[in-house]
Computed example of a mutant assay.
Amino acid sequence: MNPRAHRLEVYEVVGETAEAVSLVFEIPAGLVSRFEYTPGQFLTVRVPSARTGSVARCYSLSSSPHCDDRLAVTIKRTPLGYASNWLCDNVTAGSLLTVLEPAGNFSPRAWNRDLLLCAAGSGITPVMSILKSALARGRGKITLVYANRDRASIIFARQLQQLVQRYPRRLTVLHWLESERGAPTAPGLATWMRPYRTWDIYLCGPPGFTLVAKRGLAQLRVSERVIRQEEYRSLTDNPFEPPTPASPIATGTLAPTAPPGVAGAAGDATVRVEIDGATHTLPWPRGKKLLDVLLDHGIDAPYVCRESACGTCVCRVARGRTRMLVNECLIDEELEMGLTLACQTLPESDDLHIAFDQ
Rank of each mutant, 00 (worst) to 15 (best):
S107I: 08
N105Q: 10
A213G: 09
C67P: 07
A20S: 11
L8Q: 01
E334M: 07
T251L: 12
S247V: 11
C118M: 15
R57A: 02
L346T: 06
W284C: 03
A278I: 05
G277H: 05
G252N: 13
G40P: 01
M128D: 06
D357L: 13
P39A: 12
E9Y: 03
A110I: 08
Y82H: 14
E12A: 15
W176N: 03
F25A: 04
F209A: 07
R139W: 04
V145I: 13
H280N: 07
L217V: 03
L87W: 02
H280A: 07
P242T: 07
I154S: 02
R139M: 09
R272N: 14
G182A: 11
G94D: 12
P28C: 11
S95E: 09
C67S: 15
V226L: 05
G53S: 13
C305G: 06
A29T: 15
R170E: 08
M193H: 05
A83R: 00
N2R: 04
R319W: 07
V10K: 01
W111I: 09
F35A: 03
D276C: 07
E231R: 02
V222Q: 03
T251K: 08
T322F: 04
L131D: 00
L339W: 03
I27D: 09
A269S: 13
V45H: 00
T210M: 08
A18D: 15
T322M: 05
P239E: 06
R109A: 15
A152V: 09
E336S: 15
G252W: 04
C329V: 12
W86Q: 09
A93I: 14
I331K: 08
E333M: 09
V173R: 01
W111K: 00
L174P: 01
P256N: 10
I299S: 05
R151N: 06
C315M: 01
V32Q: 15
H6G: 04
A218H: 08
N105F: 02
T78W: 09
I227G: 01
S60V: 04
L352C: 08
